[in-house]
Nucleic acid binder design. Structure first.
Length: 492
RNA sequence: GCUCCCGUGGUGUAGUCCGGCCAAUCAUCUCGGCCUCUCGAGCCGAAGACCCGGGUUCAAAUCCCGGCGGGAGCACCA
């Protein structure tokens, strides 16, 4: 027993967990995911949303979905719904939902307070002047001499004035040099129409909303780091509660653009098919490619919440996805670049093949005669006299080979060391498979990132539901679209 | 340029706050072997890391200083 050196160990597959949250008590944690309703969600949003969601669940807390819709020129009505659908697809459920724009009256109230208490001022300098003075660390006359009230400000024209925090123009942190808190935007809002024209900036509503909504642990990505000081200073001025702010690095994937800023031009220039292009890390794109929401969850949470920036390879997501898919995907035969095989002494029959090698998912029927097709790649390796096996069927000996292969039936029993090749019979359907690759190779746009493989699939592929993910044996996992005519390869 | 953040195997990550239990976790990748009528999955095993240099300490991945490298910000966008 022991001398065989066999150790019997309990192997617990512990679910990957996020590290404990600092200053967190069970039942007391409130988190929030605050997208701007201006586009489709991508895997970077998924990371933020899952971190927020998971921590709320881990501590029996509350998870809020908040739409940061305070720039009317950016927001579009459809995206409120689209983003919610994306979140639902991920399996994320939120306890509360609201729009930041609904709280503008409260924001105005706080703005007046800041003004009255001398913590902010209306500035009529031009954008260039503001920028210049920040560089020179110089205070302007608006801050010290003039004294425009909120009411006057509210009547001014777009671009004429902004409300600024009295920070510290001498601060080493440029974000503290009197950041703009409110500006006038003359543009209808998708929800409120023309009701408001003075809109808060991120520095203002981000801090204020987190505080007022009771959020205890707000997360944001690292590029906001320098604004932390503004965040806390502002809340101090307003006498509001300060949440425990945390930042993590943005998710980066090698060869894939993970940001709206980079994805949008690709779509506009026709470099990709749209927001749901399977080469894109948008949730719509990943879904179309056959990536499961659970896989996205495991993957993004495995990235953790550290500030260390890193570039992950997509294969890591594929690995997670593949393992999840393996147990649920039905198997079919697909023959890329088919080569005809004519088999002598072939029996005409109907065979039953299992949908899954080890899990009982039932069987499918295939009619076979003496005509088959096998992949060109496998055919090219065959020589006259070789024996190969039509997988799950029988063995064939190559009698002659040119454009097609002529062979003969040489038995049903499994022979050791014989190649098993997937095949289709004379009853096949034409199938195209899109194979998404990386959009960038060594920082260069890859014009050939989408390959298309044409081939024959077994007729049963027609029965596959739109959107189902199956495995084409010895080929890869493929999500089926358009009644079996097209597939999109997720990965091997 | 200035300011801030970051630096653990090929890749990602845990550990860093509160130095010792870290001769460093987990996953992926790679390489062997087993299993299997898939090139998938599963199982077993191997290889592989604390950016560099000083300092503090009985003891440093962990604290301090310097260097190097990477990233971000310097918007009336978030």
């Amino acid at each position: 027993m022991e001398k065989l050196g066999i150790k019997v160990e309990e192997r617990k597959v512990e679910k990957k967990k996020l590290p404990p949250l600092p200053h967190a008590e069970k039942g007391e944690v409130i988190t929030r995911f605050p997208p701007e309703p201006n586009g489709y969600l991508h895997i970077g949003h998924a990371k933020a949303a899952f971190v927020d969601y998971e921590y709320a669940r881990m501590y029996d807390g509350i998870f809020i979905l908040r739409f940061d819709d305070t720039n009317p020129v950016n927001e579009r009505k459809e995206f409120y719904e689209v983003q919610k659908e994306d979140l639902k697809w991920l399996g994320i459920e939120w306890d509360k939902e609201y729009r930041t724009s609904d709280n503008l009256p409260k924001h105005y109230e706080l703005a007046r307070q800041l003004l009255e208490e001398g913590n902010a001022y209306i500035c009529t300098c031009s954008e260039e002047e503001i920028s210049r003075n920040r560089k020179l660390m110089k205070e302007c006359a608006c801050r010290n001499e003039r004294n425009i009230s909120w009411n006057e400000f509210a009547k001014m024209e777009e671009g004429e004035a902004v409300m600024r925090l009295k920070g510290d123009m001498k601060s080493k942190n440029t974000a503290m040099r009197d950041p703009v808190l409110f500006r006038i935007i003359e543009h209808p809002h998708p929800i409120h129409g023309k009701r408001f024209r003075v809109w808060p900036t991120y520095d203002f509503y981000g801090a204020v909303e987190d505080s007022l909504s009771g959020v205890t642990h707000p997360f944001r990505s690292k590029e906001y780091e320098l604004r932390d000081e503004v965040y806390f200073y502002l809340l101090d001025c307003l006498g509001l509660r300060k949440p425990y702010l945390m930042e993590f690095s943005r998710l980066e994937i090698k060869g894939m653009p993970v940001s709206k800023r980079k994805i949008k031009p690709l779509i506009e220039n026709g470099k990709v098919m749209g927001w749901d292009d399977p080469r894109l890390p948008t949730l719509k794109g990943l879904k179309r490619r056959g990536i499961l929401p659970e896989a996205i969850k495991e993957f993004v949470l495995s990235q953790g919440i550290s500030r260390a920036e890193s570039v992950v390879v997509f294969e890591n997501l594929e690995a997670v996805n593949r393992k999840m898919l393996d147990g649920v995907a039905r198997r079919y035969f697909f023959v890329p670049e088919p080569v005809k095989v004519v088999v002598e002494n072939a029996e005409e029959m109907e065979v039953m093949l299992k949908y899954h090698p080890s899990i009982d998912m039932g069987v499918r029927k295939i009619k076979v005669g003496n005509i088959f097709f096998i992949p060109a790649e496998d055919a090219s390796k065959l020589k006259q006299g070789d024996i190969f096996r039509l997988k799950d069927l029988y063995n064939v000996k190559v009698k002659s080979k040119n454009d097609e292969i002529h062979g003969e039936f040489v038995g049903k029993e499994l022979l050791p060391g014989v190649e098993k090749i997937q095949w289709v019979s004379h009853e096949y359907v034409e199938v195209k498979v899109m194979i998404p690759g990386l959009l960038y190779e060594n920082d260069e746009f890859n014009e050939n990132s989408l390959k298309i493989v044409e081939g024959y699939g077994e007729k049963n592929i027609r029965e596959v539901k739109e959107g189902e993910i199956v495995q084409f044996e010895r080929f890869g996992f493929v999500r089926i679209e358009r009644n079996g005519i097209t597939g999109i390869m997720a990965h091997k």
